[in-house]
Nucleic acid binder design. Structure first.
Lengths: 308, 308
DNA sequence: ACTGAACACAACTCCCAGTTGTGTAGCTAG
DNA sequence: CTAGCTACACAACTGGGAGTTGTGTTCAGT
């Protein structure tokens, strides 16, 4: 479908005359007529009844009208999404299905009028560069050390994502109602995708392992949470740690158990990182929303690496 | 913006390779490359980082991605809106800002997943023809006489729109808290757009005038409710009757009064009219919704023309 | 260094969107 | 009733651009 034809259709519907639509678009009446004829051919319906007094919408034309408007609006939003000035707030999250994404959805539902674009960069280094360069307005990341932030960039810890133990039915801890990190020492914990000297969540799990003497295994690429759950379900000795929030789609018949970790509860701390001089009005709204609705961070009984 | 280019962008983003997108679309890799280059030129941003291992989205590309999806979805909906089979339920209402439109909005909010297209035809004759011909699925109209319905077409009275008296501050009835139809006899009531032998709401007002001895004036075309209100506000002897529901935008400084009419209260009866053999699932939903949430029709103390 | 994979650039073709020019239908004024 | 006006459609033509073929470039893996 040709959006220029749709635009012509809209103008002609508004004014009731092809000539006016053509003038508005800077083309001839004949061109406008051809555009609409082509659109009618593609849709295989008549959109206007032509007469010597102008053009009037048919029933099909009336039904098409709101959809034509929606198309123009979608086009305008798409254009605005990449326009450097006055674009929608662009936010980076660690994963589209993480707990932060859920918080962002909450923000969007509370303020449906604000425009938000969510992207995912590979690691905190790229994210900080993008914040500094203005390509994104903010990022939610685990900031291991506030000192790594470049000058002019601020951060605030806004959300702690609780980690649960994920085990299969034949795992020794499958029957436990809760576990402590100390109990996990010696058990194999598998979190695919962890890389040496890698992205910041690898750093987090390494610090977690060091603190409680865990053996956290990161071998192999991440083939998706389905694969992870397949492996856990079949294994007698491999467990994993998963964030509370994503609410994974639970495959049937696997009989996986999600066991809360207590005393202390490891939490993954998300910080909002933004450039101090970013004037985007939605950024202030977002910070306000997070302050108002976010759960308290650093709750007693929770653990995060030092320096967060 | 070229939707074919957007489609190519989406496929390339999904597969990570221009070649795959091109194959999917039945064009060459070079053509896909050109399409995306043209899109990038129009948007004045780079959407992909190219390498010998494929193409990966840039930050701008990631931000553009959901908008591209929205465009494709809007296009699909626009196409479906005029496809004869399996299209959205198409309903005709007497006016986009009438009480029935408000009820339809309620239906849409209660069932956001159903697709609805609202059109407005000129009179009940055209509407019945369209229902019979299948161009629309249902119409909300005042059915003066059930016998005018063609065979195979059913109707059900679903909503009574109460009529209030609208007067300016210097009108003799301006101070009344309520009025009766009998009190209105002798006063000039102006309802622009009424035509002899005309559309069905003209018929309604004529029957109303005959019943209570009112002089209802229909001279002149309808220049919009703003014009109507201007005239009423300035006149010492002209009043009008307006439906309760539309909740007109009240112009400032006019000091208009909306006075309830009692004993009896004239109501404008809307009937839903549909073809008995229309299998559209949303039609059944709509009828159920109206039965469940609609106000009772034919309430005691209300008046409608006989035969409705 | 060689090979293969993947995208970009160049040259060419041809189709189609737009233009100019003209036809036709319907309303209106005299 | 006719002349004239208005508004859209049809016809012929033209130029630009989208697509194709052919080739170049870059980069990863062997």
């Amino acid at each position: 479908m040709d959006l220029e034809a749709v635009r012509t259709f809209l103008l002609a519907a508004q004014t009731g005359r092809f000539q006016d639509a053509a003038t508005e678009l800077g083309i001839t009446q004949q061109a406008a007529s051809k555009r609409i004829a082509a659109l009618e051919k593609e849709l295989a319906v008549r959109l206007f009844t032509r007469s010597a007094r102008g053009a009037q919408l048919t029933i099909d034309g009336q039904a098409f009208l709101p959809h034509a408007r929606a198309l123009m609006q979608a086009e305008a939003k798409a254009l605005a999404s990449v326009r450097p000035e006055r674009r929608a707030l662009r936010v980076d999250v660690i994963a589209k299905r993480s707990g932060m994404s859920a918080l962002l959805r909450g923000f969007h539902e509370a303020r449906p009028e604000v425009e938000l674009d969510v992207v995912t960069l590979v690691d905190i280094g790229q994210a900080l560069d993008a914040v500094r360069g203005g390509e994104i307005d903010a990022t939610f990341r685990y900031v291991a050390d506030v000192r790594v932030l470049p000058p002019g960039v601020e951060s605030a810890r806004v959300f702690d994502d609780r980690l649960d133990l994920l085990v299969g039915p034949r795992h020794p801890l499958a029957g436990a109602r809760t576990v402590t990190p100390a109990q996990l020492a010696g058990h194999r914990i598998w979190i695919p995708g962890i890389v040496p000297d890698g992205v910041e969540w690898s750093v987090y799990y390494k610090k977690l392992a060091a603190e409680f003497g865990l053996s956290i295994d990161g071998i192999g690429p991440f083939f998706g949470s389905d694969h992870l759950m397949d492996v856990i379900a079949d294994s007698v000795d491999v467990a994993s740690l998963v964030a509370e929030k994503p609410r994974l789609a639970w495959p049937d018949g696997h009989d996986l158990r999600r066991i809360p970790v207590l005393d202390p509860t490891p939490v993954y701390p998300h910080s909002l990182v933004w450039r101090s001089d970013n004037p985007h009005p939605v950024l202030a709204l977002l910070r306000g929303h997070l302050a108002a609705t976010g759960r308290p961070v650093g709750a007693p009984g929770s653990w995060t690496p030092a320096g967060a």
